[in-house]
Amino acid sequence: MHEFEYVAPRSLADAVAVLSRLNGQAKPLAGGTDLIDQMRMGRYQPGTVVDLKKIPELVRLELSSAGLRLGAAVPCRVINEHPAIASDYSALKDSTHIIGGIQIQNRASVGGNLCNSGPAADSSPSLIALGAVCVVTGPKGTRDVPVEQFCTGPGKNVLQPGELLVELKFPSPAANSGSAYERFIPRYEMDIAVVGVGASVTLDAAGETIISARIGLGAVGPTPIDATSAAALLVGKSATRETLELAAEAARGLATPIDDMRGTVEFRKHATGVLVRRVLETAIQRAKGLA
């Protein structure tokens, strides 16, 4: 590995200042579970690594009536051990629960997962399903970016030089709502998503009719996909298998995967539909309080 400097600013302002000053020659470090490996492989050779874990806003987790505010550097393990997240933001926990093993979860953050902007990142479809908003701060101030607009290509996102992701904001869950995430991997552990699907649904008070839904797809396009048009097919319909198959089929049409060592176009499109149906089924069960 090449030689580099390490700095650990204690405030957001200091972090933005150092990132702006080094203008592209620095890389933020949260858990480092992507970055260190990428530096070892020579993919990135930053002159300076800027550790974000000493900045209060980035390691904060706040749950209130206004919703969830999740600091970008909060490790997965903290999320996994938070009972209210498991019940109110189930898809998020489904994701953070399968990112690596315990050692990785002790370090890996959702912010890092998102900023790494890999198409197969396990948290992205859940963030889309849960309607998360990214809070981005930089030399020109702070802005909100809906999570589905954050990634722009494999390894690319909307962050400008000097900018960093501070936190993710999630709305409070509606009554009778539920969410879930599932990925397909050829093995039973230690693998990367060949297809990942996150979904959330809100049912009417009777628990029969879907009043709103969101679906996020991972690993089937250059960026995570917000399958809005597929989710729209569910609205106003009763939560039957036929309804879910409609959304599944539509999601297949939205997927634009590639052939690679992890799967074929044929497989990924097909599996997208299967997972959309299965994940919606779980989310509906959860909305009904049954799972």
């Binding site: 050829p186 093995r187 552990e189 230690m190 060592m261």
Partner: peptide, 14 residues
């Protein structure tokens, strides 16, 4: 796929 991520030998969970 010259890594143990993408060259998939079975794990104990498989």
């Amino acid at each position: 796929n010259s890594t143990f991520l993408d060259y998939r030998i079975p794990t104990c969970l498989d």
